[in-house]
Nucleic acid binder design. Structure first.
Length: 812
DNA sequence: AGCACGCCGACT
DNA sequence: GTCGGCGTGCTC
């Protein structure tokens, strides 16, 4: 007897055992898709994870319904990768499968109903709904539940269907269909062999002038154009129509055939050659190669505009020349047009894109191409790690420090940067992590020899790096040399920059107009009704918005508590900075770039255009502004409230501030080398600002590492965050306490921090508690993680706590 | 995750 | 008195 372990797209532990019947025995392989029944009447598409002969003892396995693939669709390396993810990040493999596959590759099971032909209907005893349904089945033999909604009220459907099933008048028919059908396009061709008799052919067409003309047209195009002839092109001018073509096809003079159309338009322009590498880049390239030779992956630490892309292109080229493929990971696809354009020019059709914003059809298209090895370079976000690569040779993780590689809100949680390294290893491929501001973890790994450290310290073409200047805002205020949140000094500098017809960027990392609307008389502030956060005031829409659940409310005119009209705003948002900027620089064209202003369609494109053309003179923005805006005319970057970057309560706050400041600085003086950065702060002697000014990245990382070591944070310990959520706070608190006590049985006490209320105690009506684990690195780590898993299992044994939602974030 | 079964409040 | 809320249990 043969059995198979099947991965199902459900958030359930482990895999499921099914029996492999005789008919599939010789065909079934690990990595193929199968159709299996599950539960009452559900059918799922699963993935074969293992084939074996151990009959289960505690239950009777069901049969595999059918085999969907003739060859494995998930490569072995991917299955290994899934397993690693599920073990390392403590999530179910089914969740990984769900995330990894475009939904149309998972067959859909929709419940369809049909008449039971063996049962007579006694119409008299039926109610109206039942009669409608049966009549519908007379007309159409199969009706789906969703179709029934058209003629039976929603809440009565289940009742009606159930009654008829009980009477055995109807049956359930599981109709399964594959959603994805490749779109086909018609092409024409003329068999060149018949051309020996060309004169004869033309003779035979003398009576059909149009057909003759069409034939000659097709022939001409075919002989001049060395690619398939799209059928539709011959009808575009209106001279010919389908019947003319039909005549030719019937006479066997022209053949019609179909090709799958790619839904993704690919670039067909010129293919550009690489520029020559600079000396510094050559050296870096040698070092990368050395790293690869030592069997190490590389951390490429290259200051902004140092030409990291250039090196990537070199390695990509080389990999492809060796017959292997490349995965190029980006944190977000939207803000990185420039890099894509560059690769597009060079690689044209061998390039593919993949990210979660594609339609399902498009995703499957890319899937197919990757599988068939038609795509040599795949550019994509973290979801592209799951494509069925056949012979991956290189993975590049650009902007490796970017938090978008590990979004907390998407399940399953994993860090694409770390996952990429593991995946590369499974494919025996090499990886390059690239950034101008590497994450502290990667930097540490590089310094410890786990990664090869390659530093590119100067801008390409020896353009000077931007200079930093720190403005003591406290002093400026005290000597009354300030307007709003701008010191007179900064204002002068920006004015100068405007006079030189150079562009300015102002960074302020807080959305909205004001953080809080506060009553001056009683101190009342408006909280979100769903979340435990103060609502942010947005002046442009004149409303209060919750940035966590999106809840909106009117801005109060009087204090709801004490009826005072003395309401004031506190905490400056980007909208207020924009307003002030416009007020101070009346003549200047000021634009804002944040999530709220970029929401409209093509807002980004429009802004991009305005900056490129020079129409926008000052761009005020949140962290968004630090990405992708590579324009030569920007020379000044101002951060009027730099302190705000440090107020975040997070052990990575300083690291993030450093990265953000450095990234946004990189926008200035890319060409002229005259970029200036003004950091305006109340704490001009804050070590971080001083270090940034010194421009000694090694020293900065030393500083970070020292703090991390002292306060026991990564990379010196492994962090696991356990998040518990429930609608009832008391129950949640008790549960969290209990989980903590279970953990205490197995883990040393100092490892466990909490439970405590999460920084945002309630989001969307769910209360949140958390337990933070600081686990030692090395051998003990795995042992402790096994204990953690055991504890979580013990916790879930308690029926009363089954309704508590638990999420674990490993290395968050 | 989905889905069925089972026990307590607001309606014909 | 029923309909229907969601708490609990199970799925190879």
């Amino acid at each position: 007897m043969t059995f198979a372990q099947i991965i199902l797209p459900l958030n359930l532990k482990g895999t499921f055992t099914y029996k492999v019947s005789e008919e599939f025995l010789s065909k079934i392989e690990v990595g193929m898709r199968v159709l299996v029944p599950f539960g009452g009447k559900k059918i799922y598409t699963g993935i074969v994870a293992e084939i074996h002969h151990n009959e289960p003892e505690t239950f009777l396995p069901k049969d595999i319904h059918s085999l969907l693939d003739a060859e494995p669709i998930v490569p072995k390396q991917q299955l290994k990768f899934w397993n690693w993810l599920s073990e390392y990040y403590l999530c179910n493999i089914g969740e990984i499968y769900r995330f990894a596959f475009p939904s149309s590759l998972k067959l859909e099971s929709e419940t369809y109903l049909k008449r039971n032909p063996n049962e007579e209907i006694n119409w008299e005893v039926l109610d109206a709904n039942e009669i409608y349904l049966l009549q519908a089945l007379e007309v159409k033999s199969l009706v789906s539940l969703s179709e029934i909604e058209a003629f039976i009220p929603k809440k009565e459907i289940v009742k009606t269907v159930k009654a008829l099933i009980d009477e055995q008048l109807i049956l359930i028919d599981e109709k399964i269909y594959e959603k994805y059908k490749a779109k086909e396009v018609a092409y024409l061709k003329i068999d060149e062999n018949i051309l020996g008799n060309l004169s004869e052919i033309l003779q035979s067409l003398t009576k059909a002038k149009k057909q003759k003309d069409l034939f000659l047209t097709i022939l001409e195009v075919q002989q001049t154009q060395n690619q398939p002839l799209r059928k539709s092109q011959f009808f575009e001018n209106g001279v010919f129509n389908a019947s003319h073509l039909r005549g030719l096809v019937e006479k066997n003079l022209v053949q019609e055939y179909y090709l799958q159309k790619d839904r993704i338009e690919t670039y067909e322009g010129e293919i550009e050659n690489l520029e020559k590498l600079s000396e510094v880049q050559e050296k870096a390239l040698t070092e990368i190669n050395e790293g690869f030779c030592e069997g190490k992956n590389v951390l490429l630490h290259g200051v902004t505009s140092s030409g990291k892309t250039h090196l990537y292109l070199e390695k990509i080229e080389e990999t492809i020349a060796n017959g292997k493929n490349v995965l190029f990971l980006l944190p977000e696809i939207a803000l990185t047009k420039q890099i894509i354009q560059r690769l597009e020019k060079k690689y044209g059709k061998q390039l593919g894109f993949y990210h979660q914003k594609l339609t399902d059809f498009e995703k499957v298209e890319v899937w197919r191409k990757v599988k068939n090895n038609e795509i040599k370079i795949l550019i994509g976000t973290r979801s592209s790690l799951f494509l069925p690569f056949q012979n991956l040779g290189l993975i590049i993780i650009d902007e490796e420090h970017d938090a978008a590689y590990k979004p907390r809100e998407v399940k399953p949680f994993f860090n694409a940067k770390d996952a990429a390294l593991v995946l590369a290893n499974y494919y025996q491929a090499k990886a390059i992590l690239g950034s101008a501001t590497p994450s502290v973890e990667s930097y540490y790994a590089a310094k410890n020899g786990k990664l090869k450290y390659v530093f590119l310290g100067e801008r390409f073409g020896e353009v000077a790096l931007p200079k930093y200047e720190i403005i003591n805002f406290k002093e400026a205020q005290e000597s009354k040399l300030s307007v709003g949140h701008f010191s007179q000094y900064l204002i002068d500098k920006i004015s100068e920059n405007l006079e030189h017809k150079k562009q300015t960027i102002i960074l302020h990392n807080r959305r909205g107009y004001a953080n809080v609307v506060e009553c001056e008389s009683c101190g009342h502030v408006t909280y979100c009704s769903n979340c435990d956060v103060v609502m942010t005031y947005h002046k442009s829409t004149n409303e209060l918005k919750c940035h966590y659940c999106g809840h909106k409310a009117q801005k109060p005119k009087i204090c709801p508590k004490c009826q005072s009209t003395n309401l004031n705003t506190r905490g400056i948002g980007i909208e207020q900075i924009e307003e002030e900027t416009q007020k101070i620089f009346k003549e200047a064209q000021v634009e804002r770039m944040d999530v709220d202003s970029m929401r409209k369609k093509f807002a980004y494109e429009k802004l991009y255009e305005k900056i490129e053309s020079g129409e926008a003179e000052i761009v005020v923005g949140t962290q968004m502004i630090s990405k992708g805006l590579d324009f030569d005319n920007i020379e000044l970057v101002a951060i009027p409230k730099a302190d705000a970057l440090l107020y975040v309560q997070d052990f990575r706050a300083e690291e993030r501030a450093y990265q953000l400041i450095t990234q946004v600085s990189g926008r200035a003086g890319r060409n002229s080398g005259k970029g200036k950065i003004y950091i305006q702060t109340y704490n001009p002697y804050h070590p971080l600002f001083e270090l940034i000014k010194e421009e000694n990245s090694a020293k900065i990382y030393e500083h970070f590492l020292k703090e991390r070591e002292q306060f026991l944070y990564p990379p010196f310990v492994k962090l696991v965050l356990i998040e518990l959520k429930h609608r009832k706070e008391e129950k949640l608190q008790r549960a969290s306490q209990f989980l903590s006590s279970v953990l205490q049985k197995y883990l040393p006490l100092p490892c466990i921090l909490g439970p405590e209320k999460a920084p945002i105690g309630k989001i969307n009506l769910l209360y949140q508690y958390q337990i933070l684990l600081k686990l030692p690195r090395g051998k003990k780590y795995q042992e402790y993680k096994d204990y953690l898993l055991k504890s979580l299992e013990e916790f879930q044994e308690i029926t009363a706590y089954k309704s508590i939602k638990i999420d674990t974030f490993v290395d968050f």
